[in-house]
Design a protein around this nucleic acid. Structure first.
Lengths: 206, 206
DNA sequence: GTCTATAGCCGGATAGAC
DNA sequence: GTCTATCCGGCTATAGAC
């Protein structure tokens, strides 16, 4: 909407981005209980009052953060999911997504936002919205995988997409508890073996 | 450890229980961000200072709450899980557990405690501890199901138990987001069909 | 064990100068 | 758009009377 400005002078856009980045870092490292306006502003080297100028409230900032993350996730993985046509491909993309998002702490952030959304309907709506493109992406990939397989009609793609997303978040929560990490890697190994095995069967009849 | 007291006079035990119950209600209805000592005390009609007398800190109370919940869960479902010997039985028990715990808000509470544990190592240890008996229960049920099935050796029971637990929590998180609930019911329907189908195959050879 | 009172800090949010 | 200063309420935690 904004007209082009020749140099990148002081529109507030950079400040908005700094605040969102700082909110992400704070959520990742101190969780939702540590994500106060003062903490976030300190971390981003931004004046605390600017949160309220740009986002209206701390909840507003967190909501904007959720939406930004949703957009990033959808953009980053859109082409990968759209290329999925078989179960092994789906598992492989899921593994890559899990590893990347886990490494960046993006799932931690998402989990903390969801937890926080239980006490803020604004945040809840924001996080829900932000999840929708992602869910659509996963669902359509699942649809293509299931379409010409013996599993067609056994489960709805929407349900499966919901389950896959739940697993991403559930793994994050469980993993964050256990000091002795990375049980999930061996799980993906098993899933890959299983997918390869089923891939053989899928050529056959329903 | 305490010697028997004839009437139920004022040992602090009732207060401790009231506080734990109030913490549960607060976590369920206001989430971890709303679970302040003052809120909890108000809800339990208990003097706020007693939190510190009995539990040392608010974190201490939340940790005790996590442990109490873990004990309750394990006790409540021990016999059901121990009776599991087949996949359909496992699915059926899982469904019952999910429905009961979901209805009581117990999974909400667990999810909020896990989210909060990212900023308190005391709480993290408590929640982790509290999960262990539960995980053991699920794992041994899975072991018995897998033992004489074609899936033996394909996945480790520990990994599967971890996955099942992650799903419980992940479903809760995803469900809490979506105003249009209960996708999970149709999922269990599908799982039951799938389990019945596989149950037929299991009689066959590996 | 329970209560009142209070210290002392940190939080969200706003007013108003620049 | 940004900054300083500030109001005010809620928070954890403790002291001390009962």
């Amino acid at each position: 909407m904004a007209l082009a400005k020749n140099p990148a002078v002081s529109t507030g856009e950079e400040t908005r981005q700094r605040l969102i980045a700082a909110a992400l870092n704070t959520l990742r490292e101190q969780g939702i209980t540590g994500a106060s306006g003062r903490c976030i502003a300190r971390r981003g080297d931004v004046n605390q009052a600017l949160i309220f100028y740009h986002f209206g409230s701390v909840d507003g900032l967190l909501t904007a953060t959720a939406r930004a993350e949703g957009a990033r996730r959808a953009a980053r993985y859109a082409t990968a999911f759209e290329a999925v046509r078989s179960l092994p491909e789906l598992v492989s993309v899921a593994r890559r997504v899990h590893e990347e998002e886990q490494r960046d702490g993006a799932v931690t952030v998402l989990a903390q936002l969801i937890a926080g959304s239980s006490s803020s309907s604004e945040l809840q709506a924001g996080v829900f919205d932000a999840m929708r493109p992602w869910l659509a992406l996963v669902e359509s990939a699942v649809e293509r995988v299931v379409e010409n397989s013996p599993f067609k009609g056994l489960v709805s793609p929407a349900d499966l997409a919901f389950t896959i997303s739940s697993l991403f978040i559930g793994f994050e929560m469980m993993t964050s508890l256990d000091p002795a990490r990375e049980r999930v890697a061996t799980l993906f190994d098993a899933l890959e073996r299983l997918a390869a095995l089923l891939g053989g069967l899928i050529g056959g009849a329903p």
